[in-house]
């Protein structure tokens, strides 16, 4: 399945992340996952929220530079080896992963993995086959 991931440009300065999350909090947006990729001057904040469309509107209105991307999200059993199995089958088909992050699922014993890959469609097909 795909989720809407929102990426936001934030300067690498004290208080910037708090400033941003406050905007979400004030609008009652719930964060489900969060990842920061940082450089010396700036960071790219990647989030998954409960209501991406509303969140996007709010972020846009607040003047942030942002992008919404479709990221592949999969749920795997929370046990050793389950991620490797998926990654190996993607690698076999030549799918390249740009980045990935994981977060706990509310469903007991499962973990959610977000995969940003170079070919969403193909990756999705491979994973469907794997599950069937």
């Amino acid at each position: 399945m795909f989720v809407k991931q929102i990426s936001v440009f934030l300067e690498n300065k004290a208080g910037k992340l708090a400033e941003f999350t406050k905007v979400l909090a004030d609008n009652n947006i719930d964060l489900q996952a969060l990842l920061i990729a940082e450089t010396q001057d700036y960071g790219i904040l990647r989030i998954i929220v409960d209501n991406p469309d509303e969140a996007t509107e709010i972020i846009k209105k607040s003047g942030f530079a942002y992008k919404v991307t479709e990221a592949l999200a999969i749920t795997v059993p929370d046990e050793p080896g389950s991620l490797t199995k998926i990654l190996a089958s993607l690698a076999d088909e030549g799918i390249s992963i740009k980045y990935s992050y994981a977060f706990y699922s509310r469903e007991h014993g499962k973990a959610n993995i977000v995969l940003r890959v170079d070919d969403n469609e193909k990756a999705s097909e491979i994973l469907e086959k794997l599950n069937s």
Binding site: S7, F9, T39, R46, K60, A65, K67, R116
Partner: peptide, 14 residues
Amino acid sequence: MTPDLFSDSIAEIS
């Protein structure tokens, strides 16, 4: 940074 230039990739921004 402008919304148009921003991409989700550090490699591209670099």
